[in-house]
Design a protein around this nucleic acid. Sequence first.
DNA 1: GAGCACTGC
Length: 731
Amino acid sequence: MADLPILQFEETIMKAVEENTVVVIIGETGSGKSTQLSQILHRRGYTKSGIVGVTQPRRVAAVSVARRVSQELGVRLGDEVGYAIRFEDRTSERTRIKYLTDGVLLRESLSNPELDQYSVVILDEAHERSLNTDILLGLMKRLVKRRASNFKVLITSATLDGEKVSQFFSECPVVRVPGKLFPVEIMYSHERPISYLESSLATALEIHMKEGEGDVLIFMTGQDDIDKLVSKLEDRVRSLEEGSCMDAIILPLHGSLQPEMQVRVFGPRPPNCRRFIVATNIAETSLTVDGVVYVIDSGYVKQRQYNPSTGMYSLDVVQISKVQANQRAGRAGRTRPGKCYRLYPSAVYEDEFLDVTIPEIQRSSLAGSVLYLKSLDLPDIDILKFDFLDSPSRKIVFFFRCVSSLFRHTFIAYNRLHPIAFAAAESLQDALKQLYLIDAIDENGLITRIGKTMAELPLEPSLSRTLMEANEHGCLSQALTVAAMLSAETTLLPGRSKNTEKKRKHDYLDLPDGSGWGDHIQLLQIYECWHQTNYDIDWCKDYQLQVRGMKFVKDVRRQLSQIMQKIARGPLDVQTSRRWKESQQDYHNLRRALCVGYANQLAERMVYHNGYRTLGFKPQVVQVHPSSVLKPDDEGKLPDYVVYQELIATSRPYLRTVCAVNIAWVTPILDKVNKININKLSGGIGRIEEHTEENMSDLPKTENVVAAVPDDHESKIQAARERFLARKGKK
DNA sequence: GAGCACTGC
């Protein structure tokens, strides 16, 4: 501990912290920033006036770092040092240093927007740019102005990103702390490989024959490639075995592996043996494998992206960023000097790779984030309560300045660099439309009472809305189950291991089938069956349902029930139905609640075939995913209208997880779609900011331009916003 | 009749 680099910088850091409200710390891997920054602040008295909170993007990190710090300070975990993650709060009144996931801190700021129990907030690993961290960055920017006298923010980031974060916080100081990594020699390919699978294979074999002891970590993009490479490696290594003096163990490592299999990667390594770990980017940050000396980096990663104009998700293989490439290389230098083989030329790294990864906030639907921001006690709501502050219109300007600066921060830098980065305006408009259709905001873009309640639920807005509607119509218990099942769905079904395939098909017949209404209903029925068995673990195993996943569903369901009981007025029925057979009606109310909640995700069947056309977005022809339990009726037809959980483009655009709904429920929603006025919904973001730029009398003229040339207007707003923000920044 | 990168409340 004493030789951690960060301790030599204690004076520098503390001087910067004392003289500034915000400080960026660039701390490379092994600098000790995660464990030491909080302790330094504790020693310097910053825990006397409040808690030092340290956010982490991942649960395991929050827990393990808290445990470590409590050991170093010689206190019991949960006393002076504690942690808070979903489903688990190990803090007490005595807690002075608190590690928490960034999601938990966001939830806390919902009930306490000033975060006044904290004297310091440290946003750790900010360069990872998780959606939650990005929103926290925006909130901190606002908070440091309001609590400048008794609040400090420290942000840790990677080298390439630190300057930008500093700019975001009005050029706050940057302190650089070196890491304790061993040097890693970087080797580039001369050309781009034709097949990075073959290229990885060749490189791995070369290392095995020519290089000394040490494990090899190979980054691939997905399970299929991992499986292929593992089997090829096994073949080739075996044929080499006589010529090599070392044995080889080849291990896959990815998120869908059972935890027992993942453990093999971390177990003790037999002597005179080399392990090849073929991994996804799970090994980039989430899991650390000891003993790795060689890294093979394909330069690619699989990323999920959202297109706000079509409402469609896709899973694409894209080039990594420089930050990611360096992070991967760093995995070779943890225990001793290592080597990193990049399967691409250095010119590609220099010229094509983005400096930093496109942040999640730019690749996701913003409906949840916008609703969350609107629900905070920021000035666009409950204006009467805050009379002592600025006038209402000024408040709205302020709100959108916070929001737009937050989104600016993440959008503008990348738009010209990367085709998949969508414009902030488009993404925000999509979010506003979605929120309007599910009654979370009114036609002026102001949050409604329903929306306010929705934001309290840790769910995507559509599911929150479904719960609220279900509560009105006596099917909350069922909706809670569906919401919980959907929160974990991908982890429920068994993996693709071949020997279970046959067995599963057989058992699958015995599982409920949704009674012809679709996948949501099937999920409900599965959970109710499990409930009937008194949550029997063996029952899950019999039906090949992931035990961990089902337990998670139970936890989520309990948490949602508690929140609903807290926020909803009147009596609630949150008990799981005890007589599920009797509830096998047509699920009328539940399906209607889903229709209301997913008003922005409806599809209409085509007249002559079973394809669907999406409603609400730019219409698209899509198919129900073959994995759906929804089957054509006796006439060979699927339901006329469905709600869908997800629209995803794989080999074709598919609706995944669908439920039949009635046309009578759909019609009023379509009326609403037709009446959408995006300018009003935007709450005059552009208009208000243009007021500050130009004369009031210019306004009608500008609005005419909107109708005629939207793009031009958009760029004008953008320009006005830039000038506005620049001027504000100088003050 | 297809396929699932990784997190998190």
